[in-house]
Amino acid sequence: MKNFKKLATVVLALVAFCFADASTATAAFPEKTITIIVPFKAGGNVDLCCRIIADEMTKVLGSQVVVENRPGGGAIIGQTYALNQPADGYTLLALTSSFVTNILGGDTSFGMSDAAAIGQFCFDPEVVCAGANSGITTLQQFMDAAKKEPLTNSTPGFSTSHHIASLILARDYGLKFDFMHTNGSADQVVQLAGGHAQVGLTTYGGAKTLIAEGKILTLATCDSRRSAPLPNVPTMAEFGYPFTYGAYRGFAVPAGTPADVIKTLSDALEKAMAAPSVIKAFEDGGFPVSYLPAAEFQKMLDDDYKNMKEITKLLEE
């Protein structure tokens, strides 16, 4: 009987230790550096946003959050790398619409189910732009010219949101483009400002400096209302061309990441996006703050996948 009691005591102690250890491990997250993988070159829109957020999330989480750029392959290289890391919350993928379009393009080793959403931090409407030396100064000139002959259109890469937006615009209004695919939004606007491309669809944040210098002209925004950082630029709808499209940006982790870890990261992102320093930095950079928690961002991604399936044939033309 004494031996049985001793055995029972040992078993109970072991069980208690295991539960305590598991609880401690969960509560301890994060215990080391968290890396945000940006699948684009440094200096682009996504990269700049992530560096602002990383600084604030470091304060919120109490662990260092850093940004690592892994560009190439229209974002596929960085996306593949991030999703092949352990599902422990220590590697985040900076996720844009290129994630969905790359999957639909059939060139990825991953699918929609291989990523779990953390949250959205920005929605940026497309801006129709022209190079200052292109001879195009109004949206109507842009539309008329593109109907007559192909305009050289600079993009941040094949299947990126800016490329998709141009394809849909071309389809809906009978426009013609010769695409110049670059390796990120920083390269895209340089090609446009340098006169190597005539036009392009981009976001205000990525082209802000070159717009201010007069090297890139803003013709219209692709939103239902005027953009706060561009109050004097009309929407396409104001010209009689109702077209709404934009770039969303958020974070995801490899599928299988524990739910409590996802919640910790999502909550940290929410707090970071509410921080006055982040709001100001986003405003200064021309990036609209638009936070969505994990569940809502996941639904948006799933809906985008369904909608994008209908236009994948545009990528094949």
Score class of each variant (00 low, 15 high):
residue 61 L to H: 09
residue 225 R to V: 12
residue 257 T to V: 11
residue 284 D to S: 09
residue 301 L to M: 15
residue 232 N to W: 02
residue 227 S to N: 11
residue 189 V to N: 02
residue 71 P to F: 01
residue 96 T to V: 11
residue 304 D to H: 12
residue 317 E to S: 09
residue 295 A to N: 12
residue 196 H to G: 08
residue 76 I to V: 13
residue 92 L to M: 11
residue 294 A to W: 01
residue 207 A to K: 07
residue 7 L to T: 12
residue 210 L to C: 07
residue 266 S to K: 08
residue 208 K to S: 12
residue 79 Q to L: 10
residue 285 G to Y: 14
residue 103 I to S: 00
residue 73 G to I: 01
residue 201 L to K: 01
residue 50 C to Q: 12
residue 16 A to I: 12
residue 9 T to L: 14
residue 155 T to P: 09
residue 242 P to W: 00
residue 93 L to A: 04
residue 1 M to F: 10
residue 168 I to N: 05
residue 121 F to D: 09
residue 23 S to K: 12
residue 75 A to I: 03
residue 137 T to K: 13
residue 158 F to D: 10
residue 42 A to I: 01
residue 149 E to K: 15
residue 3 N to Q: 13
residue 95 L to Y: 07
residue 221 T to N: 04
residue 54 A to P: 04
residue 73 G to P: 04
residue 172 D to T: 05
residue 67 V to H: 09
residue 185 S to H: 03
residue 14 L to N: 07
residue 15 V to Q: 05
residue 41 K to S: 14
residue 101 T to Q: 11
residue 49 C to S: 14
residue 310 E to G: 04
residue 166 S to L: 02
residue 217 L to C: 02
residue 81 Y to I: 14
residue 221 T to S: 11
residue 296 E to S: 13
residue 123 F to E: 09
residue 110 F to A: 06
residue 82 A to C: 09
residue 115 A to W: 02
residue 111 G to P: 06
residue 223 D to A: 15
residue 29 F to H: 08
residue 45 N to L: 04
residue 174 G to R: 05
residue 150 P to D: 06
residue 296 E to W: 01
residue 187 D to M: 05
residue 51 R to G: 00
residue 90 Y to Q: 06
residue 118 I to G: 08
residue 257 T to S: 11
residue 194 G to Y: 02
residue 299 K to Y: 02
residue 31 E to Q: 14
residue 243 F to Y: 14
residue 238 E to A: 07
residue 250 G to N: 10
residue 262 I to W: 02
residue 29 F to Y: 15
residue 255 A to P: 00
residue 97 S to R: 07
residue 55 D to W: 03
residue 126 E to V: 04
residue 26 T to R: 14
residue 58 T to F: 01
residue 230 L to S: 06
residue 155 T to V: 14
residue 99 F to V: 06
residue 276 P to D: 09
residue 253 V to D: 09
residue 314 L to H: 08
residue 88 D to S: 10
residue 120 Q to L: 05
residue 33 T to R: 13
residue 286 G to W: 02
residue 82 A to R: 00
residue 85 Q to W: 08
residue 248 Y to V: 04
residue 312 T to F: 02
residue 200 G to F: 03
residue 79 Q to H: 12
residue 191 Q to I: 00
residue 13 A to S: 15
residue 93 L to F: 07
residue 55 D to R: 13
residue 264 T to C: 07
residue 95 L to F: 06
residue 6 K to L: 14
residue 29 F to T: 09
residue 84 N to C: 05
residue 225 R to H: 12
residue 81 Y to E: 12
residue 23 S to H: 11
residue 161 S to F: 11
residue 293 P to N: 09
residue 128 V to S: 00
residue 286 G to N: 05
residue 289 V to Y: 00
residue 294 A to P: 10
residue 278 V to Q: 01
residue 95 L to D: 06
residue 265 L to R: 01
residue 29 F to N: 07
residue 6 K to A: 13
residue 265 L to W: 05
residue 241 Y to G: 08
residue 116 A to N: 05
residue 26 T to A: 14
residue 240 G to D: 05
residue 154 S to I: 11
residue 234 P to A: 11
residue 289 V to N: 12
residue 191 Q to V: 01
residue 203 T to S: 12
residue 153 N to V: 06
residue 3 N to R: 13
residue 307 N to A: 15
residue 207 A to N: 07
residue 202 T to N: 12
residue 302 D to L: 07
residue 262 I to K: 13
residue 109 S to L: 11
residue 196 H to L: 11
residue 123 F to Y: 13
residue 165 A to H: 10
residue 49 C to F: 05
residue 284 D to W: 04
residue 204 Y to M: 03
residue 271 K to H: 10
